[in-house]
Design a protein around this nucleic acid. Structure first.
Lengths: 261, 261
DNA sequence: TTGGCCACATTGACTGGACAATGCAGACTG
DNA sequence: CAGTCTGCATTGTCCAGTCAATGTGGCCAA
């Protein structure tokens, strides 16, 4: 066969074939993370289809989060190095087990920053329900965007009933050295229980913008509700975690030595 | 204005405009969950662009998981009603708190099924690392697909070191009444600690097929490693959770009454 | 009433173009 | 040598069309 290498027919449509081939090459390391893919024009020649078809194939991989396009340079295999997100950290300072480190890439020597914005607002239905607020009750919203090495890493919005935290350090738009939970505790609202909910979904355009997400990046939407000993909810924290930058991790211990399902 | 309603120019490209308009209508309820969108032809007329452009706009929404196309009927707004996935359930039978029910849709009166497939296999690197296996050591893989109302809900693959579970009920391809964990416990490998890792990503084509996922559906990839009192890992369970069908939930209690970050 | 057949509306896949936008590298200039 | 400009390869957007695949619903016959 001469110069015109036209791939023989395989299974499925052209765009399926092309994206399958490329996906395979990414999986087996032929195309390593960070590597440049063939250009659209090259793939057009190679498979003997039009550029539109090649673009459709590449779009599939983009939406799977496997590649990104850097206009006008080319397409590249994405690389991901997630950091560990541990919701338990606030209740459990450092009872870390050595086994964990084995399969997790820690972020060390990176440069953390954050922006803080505090406002008094009407709670969304989502927040009002979890804080068990009556109509008209307001909340204090502390909105943070956290950066690592200058890149946005996650969004963290905390909500407190206004009645509880009026004229406290929580309402100042700056970092709270001792932590917001400690401030609540000193006000008599020590949290002893929390419920975490985690939703997995695609980001809204707003989240894409704020977190500078590449197409095909899903997010974890983490809602944490903190309760006092009496069962009163005093805090809702919503964290948006880009899937390509986080691993969420929990450590659990058996509590009842007896039965299980 | 007469019949030919051509939308005036807004911000961004045509496909951005069109997808933004539709997304807005979905968000504010003009297009309710389950509602049918205008056809491609209608949108083509309405915006005065070609069908290719309209399709590009619709593709955006499909990949955001907001709509699905039902060929050849039309596009529809997706509806999601997630069930609760509680990794803690195995260690913590029913210490349920009433607050939880408030914001979660429980699955009741649904028809659960599952398929089970057992094999002896070489562990993947992912599994071998977590089970701290040496090269050549084999594992028993119990692969399950769980269905609810006839639809696949999640994939659950459990891996055990072959040495530990040879000739036990774990190797039989049927449901284990008392639970695999109890079998392990009776063999002297009672799990008292577990580490959960959760990755958020787009599914592989294989996962799309097995879980019958609609395009634009991300997944939660949950890896649970169970340890005995002595710190020996005896079980790795990998669960693939479609984002549109699950909420992952944890309940936490303060353990050290003292400090926090 | 029931079952089968078929037209039709609608989405899916693809062709073959055109022009715009943009980062990069190499040539040019001071 | 440093800075600027410019050509160019490459991706982004869009047009105007063709043919294929497939549920749906209506029509018709048994």
């Amino acid at each position: 066969m001469g110069g015109m290498a036209v791939k023989k027919v395989g299974r499925g449509t052209y765009k399926q074939q092309i994206s399958d081939d490329l996906r395979q090459q990414i999986a087996d390391g032929t195309l390593a993370p960070g590597a440049k893919l063939p250009t659209e024009a090259q793939l057009t020649d190679e498979y003997g289809v039009t550029r539109g078809t090649v673009r459709a194939a590449l779009d599939i991989l983009v939406n799977e989060g496997l590649i990104v396009s850097k206009r006008p340079v080319g397409y590249f295999v994405r690389e991901r190095k997630p950091m560990v997100f541990r919701p338990q950290a606030e209740f459990r300072p450092r009872p870390y087990t050595p086994e964990m480190d084995a399969f997790m890439t820690e972020h060390q020597g990176r440069d953390p920053e954050q922006t803080i914005e505090v406002s008094i607002a009407e709670p969304t239905a989502e927040v009002a329900k979890r804080l068990q607020l009556k109509a008209g009750q307001l909340v204090v919203a502390r909105r943070r965007v956290r950066y690592l090495d200058g890149e946005p890493f996650n969004i963290n919005d905390s909500f407190f009933p206004l009645d509880l935290v009026r004229d406290t350090p929580i309402m100042r738009p700056e970092s709270i050295a001792e932590g917001a939970n400690e401030v609540l505790a000193s006000l008599g609202y020590r949290q002893v229980r929390a419920i975490d909910e985690l939703y997995v979904r695609m980001p809204t355009p707003d989240e894409v913008r704020r977190l500078e997400l590449a197409p095909g990046t899903p997010i974890g939407y983490h809602v944490c509700t903190g309760y006092t000993e009496e069962g009163k909810p005093v805090r809702v924290a919503i964290t948006v975690l880009p899937g390509d930058r986080h691993v969420i991790s929990y450590e659990r211990r058996r509590e009842t030595p007896a039965d299980e399902s």
